[in-house]
């Protein structure tokens, strides 16, 4: 019995020693999933560490949930891509300031052959969505209140269409993240909305490709700081350093050098 106990003790010492010590100044970013999935944070982290000395810890959930988590004060700063939701967050008094710092493009992806067969060549995202609606082509919605889902809903709204009324025969809601949704769209030969960085970095494209771009609106990412009066735990000075870096020439340069598929993933503002 003593033998077993000493073994357990030894093992627990070993396991405890294997824990990593964290000494650096760090902040938690509540973020949209797209930036993490595209590898952007992994690229950005060493630059932030070098120029600001701050280590970032990213919790990647949908924009809707990121804002919800931030209202619970579970983080230090918000990086999302839904203008209306961010402005709403500012209005509630939780948000302090919002800075747009980079953008890329919204796209609609769908089966490769659809582009030529259905005469989508040269059409804009709204025109394609109208045709999808008219012809009842399969369309996959995120349905998870993420930034991309909010964008999709606003596009239908611009077309004066109401997705709640669409029959489930062709309009399907996954309620899942971007990756799962792209995979389902690919398997079903369906259309879905995404952004260029997510699409370039997604590894399982299969038979799908970009069929059209949004020529009117950009996919804009903003960093929103949080009111310390609402959340006293937030590390305001560290957050300010991050914001300052993203707005600096140095930061802009760093963003523009992040490339996926030999193309710029994001453009600094």
């Amino acid at each position: 019995m003593k033998n077993i106990l000493s073994r357990i003790l030894l093992l627990s010492v070993f396991v405890a020693l294997s824990s990593s010590n964290v000494l650096a100044d760090n902040i938690i970013i509540q973020s949209s999933t797209s930036l993490k999935n595209s590898g952007f944070y992994r690229y950005l982290a060493p630059f932030l560490k070098q120029y600001t000395g701050i280590e970032i810890r990213v919790v990647a959930v949908g924009t809707g949930q990121a804002i919800k988590n931030m209202k619970n004060c579970d983080g230090d700063v918000l990086i999302t891509h839904s203008r209306n939701a961010e402005l709403e967050f500012l209005k509630t008094g939780y948000g302090l300031e919002r800075f747009e710092f980079m953008y890329n493009n919204w796209v609609i992806v769908g089966p490769r052959k659809a582009k030529t067969e259905k005469n989508f060549v040269g059409l804009e995202i709204r025109e394609i969505m109208k045709i999808i609606y008219d012809r009842k082509e399969k369309f996959i919605s995120r349905g998870d209140n993420s930034g991309t889902h909010m964008k999709e809903l606003s596009l239908w709204k611009e077309l004066a269409l109401v997705p709640e009324e669409f029959p489930k025969t062709w309009y399907l809601e996954t309620g899942s993240g971007q990756g799962a949704t792209l995979m389902i769209a690919n398997e079903l030969g369906a259309f879905t909305i995404t952004d260029t960085a997510t699409w370039y970095s997604f590894k399982n494209k299969g038979e799908s490709e970009i069929v059209g771009y949004d020529n009117n609106d950009l996919n804009t990412y903003a960093i929103t700081t949080v009111n310390p009066e609402k959340c006293e735990n937030i590390k305001s000075s560290a957050v300010e350093k991050i914001v300052a870096f993203l707005k600096s020439d140095n930061g802009k340069n760093t963003i523009s050098k992040f490339r996926l598929n030999n193309a710029n993933a994001f453009f600094p503002i």
Partner: peptide, 9 residues
């Protein structure tokens, strides 16, 4: 879970 969502099956 993360690699699946990135499509790195």
């Amino acid at each position: 879970a993360l690699e699946t969502s990135k499509g790195n099956l």
